[in-house]
Simulated assay, not measured.
Amino acid sequence: MTDDHEAVRDLLAAWAFGALEPADERTVPAHLAECESCAAQAQRLRETVRLLDGPPLNILVRSADGVLSLALRTRPAARVAAHAAPYAAAVAGLKALLPELEGRWTTPVVHDWDVHATVAHLLAADEHLAGRLGVASRVPASRIAEGTGWEEAWERRTAEVIAHEHGRTPEETVADWAAQAGELLGTAEARDAELAARAVMLMGLRLPVADHFLVRAFEAWIHTDDIGRALGIAVPPPPQEHLGQLVRLAVRILGLALGPTAPPVLFSVTGGEEWVLGSEDEPVAAELALDPVDFCLLVGGRHTPKTVPRGATGDAAAVRNVLERAASLAWL
């Protein structure tokens, strides 16, 4: 190993997880002892590894009939603020699947992506928020022209990163994804709700940084579920508290997308809250109830307006409008 910043940076994730190759076990610590910037980054990563081992613990269990599922056990004392806790848990969930991915990286998952490409997509997706919070990119700089519409830029950047990562090993892609996620969770904004209250524009949405952490949690969980389905492993939904945070964010975005003139619909999630979506100046035209997981899967593009289970009464067109607008929010 050459003793420079780039070579060491490529090994910091392995160092944080205690997984250095024998040849690097002396050279990396020696460099960290002399380089303040690398040492600081390494310490942030190691602290985040401890964090990811502290909140909800995800483990794989096998049922009596041989079916694998991802089980969730709750641990106390997460070291991030409430807005970042769902992302920390979603990252931990995907990490729990990693032992099952060996030898199965080319399994088709979603769109035209295999397992390797799906993790590469998460690496690309997280870099938008990471860059805004001062986390250095772990992939080559984008070649997309400034001013490109966010949807086109989103698709092209994912394609760029997937192409780049397919030239590397899946283990290298996972290490960079985990390191970037760790640095995101190590930022001041992940730990301080006041700092996370400032709004930034990402993916066509101007939201507080706190909400962008929830968006990252949403996407990490959806794609972990995608991978689980592809591998025949049942992935549980987020813990109830985290699921409620995701639902409330999705409802706020859906309300903005519907606007103030849509026929008003009383929308509720099973066993939870209810909201009036659409016009506030007209009587409610219909009522719509969805399971919270089904609602998230609809917004995430994994259910369609026709297939999502629902309870509905009143104006069918008003209900259809809400369902179709919810589905239109999907970009995952």
Score class of each variant (00 low, 15 high):
G255F: 03
A85R: 05
H242Y: 09
A78N: 06
T261Q: 15
R157A: 03
E165A: 12
A163M: 10
S137T: 05
H223P: 02
V293D: 10
W275R: 01
D3R: 15
G18H: 07
A40V: 10
E280I: 11
K95M: 15
L297T: 06
W105Y: 13
Q240F: 04
T107V: 14
R156V: 11
V139P: 09
L195P: 00
C35L: 03
Q245C: 04
S37Q: 15
V209M: 00
L32E: 01
G147S: 07
P292G: 00
A141T: 05
A317D: 15
L97A: 06
P238Y: 07
A318V: 03
F295P: 01
R252T: 11
V91S: 02
E102K: 13
W150M: 04
A120D: 01
C296H: 11
E127L: 06
A30E: 13
E274F: 15
L57A: 15
R138W: 13
G66D: 07
V115E: 09
H111V: 12
E160C: 01
H164W: 15
S279P: 00
L329C: 04
E324W: 04
M203V: 10
D4N: 14
P263Y: 04
H166A: 06
V293M: 09
P86Q: 03
E127C: 11
V91I: 12
I222T: 15
A317N: 13
H128M: 13
L60S: 11
G244H: 03
H164D: 13
V265M: 03
S142N: 02
A40G: 11
L298Y: 06
H212C: 00
W150R: 07
I162N: 01
C38H: 01
A85P: 00
G259S: 09
R46M: 07
V284C: 05
P29E: 07
L60F: 12
E25I: 07
V110K: 07
R73D: 12
E6L: 13
E171W: 15
G134I: 01
D65G: 04
V265D: 02
A117E: 14
A234H: 08
P239G: 13
P292N: 00
V67F: 09
Q240C: 06
P264R: 01
D294Q: 11
F295L: 08
M203G: 10
L11E: 11
V174P: 04
R302S: 02
I227L: 09
L202A: 05
A39Q: 10
A317I: 08
I222F: 13
R252Y: 06
L51E: 12
D112L: 12
A199M: 10
W221F: 10
L290K: 05
H164R: 08
I162E: 11
